[in-house]
């Protein structure tokens, strides 16, 4: 089967060690994680991991079930690229002198809707949010000026389907009470 890029959202209880339990599920199957981002979710006490991997879908389905099997995982879902809205953020540190002397700096910054976060005598920090291709494009255009430091965040994604996490949690809590 063909490998495609998928985004897995894992919702967990906020407990020590759960990130490790989540990642070893991938490690054990020798699946490389392209990016991972962790944050709180909209439901209090529930954390959310956004994990991007390239795999074939049958394998993804099995991995998602293994994730859900973890005692502290509330829910795990996966989505193809069309079912989510996603962004990443990238920061670029470049020499202020190089940026100014080239004359093209303003053009590039404007064309990419990048933000200038700070300008110091020695360096300037730019910020760009977008998808990987977009932040990468800016990276390549800035490269001739010498990039002193670069960092890109993991993908964060919002799913398009409408089922809310709150309603899922409510249902699980009800099932638990009935047992």
């Amino acid at each position: 089967m063909e490998k495609k890029r998928f985004t897995i959202s894992v919702f967990t209880e906020d407990v020590v060690g759960i990130l490790n339990r989540v990642t070893i599920i991938f490690t054990r199957r020798k699946i490389n994680i392209e990016s991972i981002a962790a944050s709180e979710s909209e439901v209090q006490g529930i954390h959310r991991y956004t994990i991007v991997i390239r795999e074939d879908e049958t394998k993804i389905i099995k991995v998602v079930k293994q994730l859900e099997k973890q005692v502290a995982v509330v829910k795990a879902v996966y989505h193809g690229e069309n079912d989510i809205v996603f962004q990443e953020i990238a920061l670029y540190k470049i020499s202020t002198e190089a940026l100014v002397s080239g004359g093209q700096a303003e053009k590039i910054v404007r064309a990419h809707h990048a933000r200038v976060l700070t300008v110091e005598k020695e360096f300037t920090v730019l910020e760009k949010t977008g998808q990987k291709e977009e932040t990468q494009q800016l990276f390549e255009e800035l490269e001739p000026y010498g990039i002193l430091e670069f960092v890109r965040s993991g993908r964060v994604a919002i799913t398009k389907p409408m089922r809310t996490l709150a309603s899922i949690v409510e249902e699980l809590e009800a099932i638990n009470k009935s047992h």
Partner: peptide, 11 residues
Amino acid sequence: EGMRSYIPTPT
């Protein structure tokens, strides 16, 4: 008394 993230027996 159980936890929401763990349903021991699925229906």
